[in-house]
Every structure is written in structure tokens, then in C-alpha cells.
Design a protein around this nucleic acid. Structure first.
Lengths: 209, 209
DNA sequence: GTCTATAGGGGGATAGAC
DNA sequence: GTCTATCCCCCTATAGAC
């Protein structure tokens, strides 16, 4: 039956297909609102098979959550640790890379934020996120700029928070914007492309304050 | 029994107390993860009474949702339609007012965003949000500044989005920050107070770009 | 208005056949 | 590996006593 049904199974295994479908539904509705039955139907399998491969809804969810967060952090780590690029260039790359990523996966930010709204430590304590940041080239370069007087704000918290805010926040509000402004997906993407170009300029202007 | 138990009922009615408790739990866990039993226990009433007053979980939720969104918008409307204050002053007041508000109700932004992530129009089509913005003094002043060359960016979308991003985003990431950075509530509030002062300056610097 | 008791259904998980 | 059938708990909602 697996080979017969070629509509969207492609060449992936059943195990992988279940996870992909589950990821998509979890992203859209969150853990609590997702029913394992929906995953099974969408993946063209029976409910029992989901438990055969992943033991439980919670275990399946946990795998997806870890993968998602890890992917998010990993991209950042690569950019932030380039020795050869300047701080300005890193800002540019982060804006560009993340905007592209979230255009492809628009549900990821609100998914992560809503699932971690209470018990973020349960997941994040196992990942060395703080070390990644504090030991990064990005962080070192920031502090160098502060010493050299190129950046007015000594606290890197605000700098990093501003950067992430300008990149990510529009995406978590996009359902609201589409409802209020009546913007189409294309128009929204157009605006985000403008932001790719603008964010580095804005950040640069804010540095002086 | 109502009068006897004075621990937290105060002087509100049972109906009101149920709603307040429900609001608190919905804010923290979202609609799907909230159980009416939890609300009943927390409000010191029986489950049947919740349905007696509010008919169903969904109706109760809807009332709270509308009230929450309305409150959020209402504050903005007042500030944005002051005839006497400048655009700069409005930015200052929005930063100050919203940061104060979200410090008091830290769960509201992520609550709204996560509940509206799929079907925002169901709720927002009934509220004249777009009209409120386009007909506002804020919007008029923005366009005047553009005409006068005081603002480089003609599209008010980016201006408003940047403002809201800088104000709200730190709060939706705060559970993650606390987990990663190990910051206490007090330290976080301290940072947000700094932002009250900085955001108008940052926005002002961005205007020139 | 407030309670107890229970109906009714849905959802996660498993047993066991193939 | 994959399916059907089913268990059983938990959750929402209601009936009916006080």
C-alpha cells in the first residue's frame, strides 16, 4: 500500500512521513489542539502505526520540538561565528537568512513561542544557548565596538533583542495583519523583502543612540 | 459558602470571579490546554456553575478574547487620536503605556498571538481596527511628516510595525530569556524600563532612514 | 444559585490478527 | 509494518435535587 499510494508519499519512509505531517499540524495548531487522529489521516496511516513508531503523542512532539529549536539556533550559530565578517555584515546576514527561513516556515516562530511560554527551561536547559551567544564572534565584535565608541549602548541585550524583534515580530503578527489590512501573501512577502534591506540600516542608525 | 470563604473572593460576584479565574488560566495555557475543571477548582465553584453562567467553555472563552483584544486596541486608540500631542510624543506614550500594561499582564501578547494564529478574521472582522488606524491623528501626522521630509520611509507599515516590535517582542520571548539568561523577573522589568526611555530615541533615529 | 451525579463523546493508547 | 477493534480515561455539558 505504501508504494501504491504515490500521491504525496514521495520516496520517504513511513516513519519520516508521519513526522513531517505531525510537524506541519503541530506547527499550525499547537500541541494541545492537535489530535493524533488528524496526523494519522493526513499521513495516510492508521493511528496504531503512529504509536508503533513514536510510542506516544508527547514523545513525537518532543522530537519535533527539539529538531525545530535546534535548527533555529544552528543557523544563528553559523552566522554569528564567522571570523571574517564584520558585525554589520552579520546583521545583514541574520536578517536575510531568517527572513528567508520564516517565509518558508511561517508558523515556526509562533509555534516555538507559544509552546515555550510556560516551561521553556525544560527544553532549553539542555541546549547550550547562552554559551553559544557569549562565546560567539558576534558577541566579541559587539563589545569591541562598544570599547571603540562605535556603539553607544553597552548592553548587548538591547542590540540583539532589537534585531530579533525587527526580524521576527512581523511574522507572528501576520495572521492579524492579513485579517486587518486584507493583505495577500504576496504583498506580505514583498514587505518582508523590503525589511531585509532596511533592517541593517535601521540597526545601524540605532547603534549611535 | 461564598461569604464564608473569604480567601480571595473579595467583593466580586461569582459570575465575575469565574471569568477572572478563566481569564488567568486561558492566558497562561491557551484555549485547548485549559480544562473547565481547572477553572472551577480555582474559582472555588462547581463545574456545573460555569455552564450555568456561561453556557459553554467556548462562549466563556470568546467573551474573554473579545474583552482582551478590545482593551488592547482601546488604549491605542486614545493615544493615537490626541490632537494636541506630536508624533514623537505619541510614540513615547505608546511605549510607556504598553510596556506598563504588559508588565502587569505579561501573558496577554502571546495569548492573543497564539489564539489568532489561524483564524484572526473571525474575531477581528467585527472590530474596526483598520479604520481606527487609517482615520487616526497618528496616521495623519505620520503622512504630514513624510510630506515635510522629516521621515524618509513613506510606508507607515514599517514605522508602526517597528514600534510594536520593539515594544512587544521582548515580552513574548521573556520565558525563553529567563530560561537562557537566568534573569529574574526584577532584572527583566529593569530592562523593559530602560526600553521605555530608549524606544522613542531608536524610533526617532530610524525615521531618518 | 449552587450542588451531586451522570450522561455522552472524544482522544490516546494497546491487543492481537494479518 | 500495518491494520481493525476496542479499552479506558478524561473532559464538557446537562439533569435534577436542594
Amino acid at each position: 500500500m505504501k508504494e501504491v499510494n504515490g500521491e504525496k508519499s514521495g520516496d520517504t519512509t513511513t516513519e519520516e512521513r508521519i513526522k513531517q505531517v505531525a510537524r506541519s499540524i503541530f506547527y499550525q495548531k499547537g500541541y494541545a489542539a492537535t489530535r493524533t487522529r488528524d496526523i494519522a489521516v493526513e499521513a495516510n496511516i492508521n493511528l496504531a502505526l503512529l504509536n508503533y513508531y513514536y510510542r506516544s503523542k508527547e514523545k513525537l512532539f518532543h522530537i519535533i520540538m527539539v529538531e525545530t529549536v535546534y535548527e533555529f539556533i544552528e543557523q544563528m550559530g553559523v552566522i554569528m561565528n564567522e571570523e571574517k565578517t564584520s558585525l554589520e555584515k552579520k546583521v545583514e546576514m541574520m536578517a536575510s537568512t531568517y527572513i528567508d527561513f520564516v517565509i518558508k516556515e511561517p508558523h515556526v516562530p509562533i509555534f516555538i513561542l507559544s509552546e515555550l511560554r510556560n516551561d521553556a527551561s525544560k527544553l532549553l536547559d539542555k541546549l547550550p544557548v547562552k554559551e553559544l551567544f557569549v562565546n560567539s564572534v558576534f558577541y566579541r565584535q559587539y563589545n569591541e565596538y562598544v570599547s571603540e565608541g562605535k556603539i553607544a549602548q553597552p548592553n548587548s541585550f538591547h542590540f540583539f533583542m532589537n534585531l530579533m524583534s525587527l526580524i521576527v515580530f512581523p511574522f507572528v503578527t501576520s495572521p492579524i495583519l492579513k485579517s486587518i489590512g486584507g493583505e495577500s501573501d504576496d504583498q506580505f512577502i514583498q514587505l518582508m523583502m523590503e525589511r531585509k534591506r532596511m533592517i541593517p540600516l535601521w540597526i545601524s542608525a540605532m547603534m549611535k543612540i
